[in-house]
Design a protein around this nucleic acid. Structure first.
Lengths: 222, 222
DNA sequence: TAATATTTCAAACAATTGTTTGAAACAAAT
DNA sequence: ATTTGTTTCAAACAATTGTTTGAAATATTA
């Protein structure tokens, strides 16, 4: 078996094809036969170069994690001179781009998004190395907007509300296209979606830190 | 092969067990062998009573759709005397309960939630018979809160923001438990989650119909 | 009760999965 | 050029999938 470092032609072809197919189909639905056929290599190549299918998946994750991290760093475009509100806007755009964009760097985002709902044995690694740092940054931004006195639990709930919105447009695409065949909520609408989610969420975070819905009602009547 | 109507002991046992297993594992990961073993029936029973695995899945969907519709009607607890804000609160609670509750009636919600991210050939049926009516009701409530002058596109985006939040707590449970091992965002927190999502969303809908995030910022500084 | 229809069962079937094999082809080093 | 190590390949392997079979058991009907 080959080492991790060596970059043979076959190895690259497999990583390339497997990245796309895993992102499209998920771990269990993607078959080694399909990957090898599309990569134009022999069936035995995966086991020779990566040990087994798990080894391939892990290599693919590591490979594209690196690329994705360079293309869309978690703090992409965020600097300390920005207001928390601007940071949130930047974060949401970066998040949406990462999971909806096209081409190689987005495959990792796609893989990660899939692990959210169809977790495999690799989820622990992903949470540790990618999801936790990214979510940590979000909770800091949200915490700054809500203010220091806000309970940690509330900060987390609000952060989840934001992530939930972002993931929905990616995950539920099959449903959305059936609900509204004419309309489109995809890659080309990232700007629109970013502005909508940011606006919706900033208002959601606005002043009503611990208020329940009935108090908000009063607020509206004002 | 048996008819749909007849309710043999074996048939019931299969529907019962298959409902649970399909909800837990999804269509493709659930195996007929596993279902039959846990139901205590012979391997051939599924093909005998339902034709094939697809036929079983369809029967399970139809069966629990009926039960779920009775237990959690889409307009559960909603009446025309309520304010739209109250209606939204009721809707969100009903939605969360449907997908997070325990026991038979919730299996259908679980199956439906799964189809959102792992669509099977059955998605078209589900969109037509369940998802579209439910989403239609939500957009009406959201439309009433936003006001008649609001663009349909905005109503839809806001409705999706609400559904996205609800589904997140269900879908991403594996990630959430890894992020916060001590905390819990599940069945027992339905009340808390309902209040949070309703509050967050009502504020999100509040007055800022077409405002982008920078205008919200100004609003906050007031 | 006897005849008929229905349901259950163990066994096998065909297709697909990930994986292994051992020889052949290729490359690198002596 | 010969040896040595590495990579590729067609073929087969073992395990799992959904499905079918045909006889046995059970229930229903005459």
């Amino acid at each position: 078996m080959n080492d991790k470092k060596t970059a043979s032609k076959t190895r690259n072809a497999i990583i390339e094809t497997a990245g796309r197919i895993f992102a499209e189909e998920g771990y269990s639905k993607a078959t080694v036969r399909d990957i090898c056929r599309q990569a134009g290599v022999n069936i035995a190549a995966i086991n020779y170069h990566f040990g087994d299918k798990k080894g391939l998946y892990l290599s693919v994750l590591k490979h594209y994690q690196e690329i994705s991290l360079k293309t869309y760093p978690p703090d992409l475009g965020i600097n300390e001179t920005q207001q928390p509100e601007e940071k949130l806007h930047t974060y949401i755009r970066s998040f949406l781009t990462r999971i909806m964009d096209d081409g190689h760097p987005a495959w990792f985002g796609r893989l990660m998004a899939r692990e959210f709902t169809q977790p495999s044995w690799a989820l622990d690694i992903l949470v540790k190395e990618t999801i936790r740092p990214s979510f940590q940054l979000l909770t800091e931004i949200v915490g700054a907007i809500l203010g220091k006195s806000t309970k940690e639990r509330v900060v987390r709930l609000c952060s989840m509300s934001i992530v939930g919105q972002c993931l929905y447009f990616m995950h539920s695409h099959p449903v959305i296209t059936r609900l509204y065949p004419g309309e489109s909520f995809g890659r080309k609408q990232i700007d629109e979606l970013t502005d909508h989610i940011t606006g919706f969420s900033l208002r959601g975070l606005l002043e009503g830190k611990n208020k329940n819905y009935s108090e908000v009602k009063k607020c509206k009547k004002r």
